[in-house]
């Protein structure tokens, strides 16, 4: 296997890992919060929700998956171009919505699907621009990277 093929294969594996970790993490957070119930906005309500989330195993599994996402993302961009890795972040919104329908049986209207598609294209456009536009020696400035 050539060096380029190996690079493509390990990037693909890392991007798949990113997508699985990010989407599973968010799904676990949703499942955990559904177990806890609606949070009420009052001092006691917020405190109770904080204690409940700390004691909820599903939330911790979600956090572990999100840590996995961060690590796989950092690993992927350490050798691959940001513009190559980034579309996974854009399509994550569509994958998450699909998982919400399939796993959580949420109802998604056609109008919301159109909104999700517009978000994916928008995020893709944002990611295709130059990742650094300022002088790195100025002490400020490369673009922030959002998953």
């Amino acid at each position: 296997m050539s060096h380029e093929h190996r690079l493509r294969l390990k990037t693909l594996i890392m991007v798949l890992l990113m997508v699985v970790c990010a989407n599973t993490g968010d799904l676990m957070l949703k499942r955990g919060m559904s177990q806890i119930g609606e949070v009420t906005i009052s001092f006691s309500g917020l405190l109770q929700a904080l204690v409940s989330t700390i004691h909820n195993g599903t939330i911790w599994i979600g956090i572990l998956f999100l840590i996995g996402f961060t690590l796989s993302y950092m690993t992927a961009v350490s050798w691959a171009d940001y513009s190559y890795v980034m579309p996974a972040g854009a399509f994550g919104y569509a994958i998450q919505t699909t998982l919400a329908v399939v796993v959580l049986h949420e109802v998604v209207t056609p109008r919301r699907w159109i909104g999700v598609a517009m978000i994916c294209v928008g995020v893709l456009l944002v990611g295709q621009t130059k990742p650094n536009t300022t002088d790195p020696n100025s002490g400020l400035g490369s673009d922030q990277v959002s998953p």
Binding site: R111, G127, T133
Partner: peptide
């Protein structure tokens, strides 16, 4: 940072998509 026209277009699309959602 310098924000290009392409990036502003992406941001506008995201805005419209979020409003629709």
């Amino acid at each position: 940072e310098d924000v290009t026209a392409k990036r502003w277009m992406g941001v506008l699309l995201v805005c419209a998509g979020v409003v629709l959602v």
